[in-house]
Amino acid sequence: MSLVSSGELKQICVIADDAGISKGHQWAQFLNCPLNPPSVDSYYFRFNVEGERVYVRDQDKRLLEIDFDKNHLDYERKGHRGKQEMIAKALGAAKGCKKVLDLSVGMGIDSVFLTQLGFQVTGVERSPVLYALLSEAFAKTQKEYLKSYKLHFANSLDFLREQNGKIEIDSIYFDPMYPHKKKSSLPKQEMVVFRDLVGHDDDAAEVLKEALKWPVKRVVVKRPIHAEQLLPGVIHSFEGKVVRYDSYVVG
């Protein structure tokens, strides 16, 4: 279970410099946590606001920063194959599917790539800290194709139940988090902080069941290459070396 998305926001504080104090107040209120406390040692996460720069560090000083223009997390993928990309095929790009609902934006890597491929993406993120980082990244990006991105702060299961039939979507994309294998190599620092923030999706199967109730053409689940299907009923799997995209055809 995540330290933060479980509601234990007392484990985070906001640290803002003079140039970022107004923005610091905004996010401290949103996160319901202290702004510039006398001592930061008792807080596992520190949400830093330095002027326009916003990032998170944990107690071990590992950094998580989302900046679509710096491309340090491979946001700008050059040489992509457009509609021939596996993820585009799975989502039905060749069948005219253009409007995608991303149920787990995370650090935005897949969402940004889908937008780069020409999809109109609406994203949902339930971690308040990640939502804050994503909001800042979308607000300051210079990439024109990201200006129309629609980001929502919500639990994906609640969002699906409340918004079914209210927004126009062609395909749904879901990349749930799963427990990290103990024997696997330690990921780079961004992934360590990311996993600590979001934990894993215990309700992934329920989210997929709810997504399959939507009047869309495709529901696509990203899975590790050797993992079992999240739910039976996969029509086709688009397989890469490490991951695959399980496609459920709804209508």
Score class of each variant (00 low, 15 high):
L3D: 01
R195H: 11
R46Y: 03
L31Y: 11
F174Q: 02
Y173F: 15
F68T: 03
A154R: 13
Y55A: 09
E168Q: 06
L31C: 06
D17R: 00
A211M: 03
K83E: 13
F113Q: 03
V54F: 14
S42T: 12
P128Y: 12
K23S: 09
R218M: 07
V220M: 09
Y245I: 00
E168T: 03
K23C: 05
D18S: 07
G106A: 09
Y248R: 01
R53H: 06
H200D: 09
E190D: 11
P176A: 08
N71A: 07
I225W: 03
P187S: 12
R57D: 12
K61P: 08
F68A: 02
G118P: 05
D202M: 12
K181Q: 07
S5K: 11
D69F: 07
I235G: 10
I167M: 10
A88D: 05
V242L: 13
Y43H: 14
K143R: 15
A227C: 08
P176K: 04
G82S: 01
F153D: 05
R126Y: 01
S104D: 05
E162T: 10
Y173H: 07
L114I: 04
I169F: 03
K181R: 09
L208N: 04
S127Y: 04
Q116Y: 01
E144K: 14
D58M: 04
M191L: 15
D202F: 07
T141D: 13
R62E: 11
P128L: 11
V221C: 00
P224N: 03
K23D: 07
K10F: 14
L114W: 08
V221G: 00
V207C: 03
V219N: 04
L64Q: 12
K166Q: 13
S104I: 00
S111K: 02
F30S: 06
K70D: 14
H200A: 09
K78E: 11
W214E: 06
H226A: 06
L130F: 03
I167W: 00
F119D: 02
Y55D: 13
R218I: 00
A16I: 04
E50G: 01
A137L: 14
V193N: 11
S184W: 02
W214G: 02
K98P: 01
L35I: 13
A205Y: 09
E144D: 15
Y75L: 09
E168F: 02
F174I: 00
L186T: 15
P187E: 12
Q116P: 00
Y55F: 15
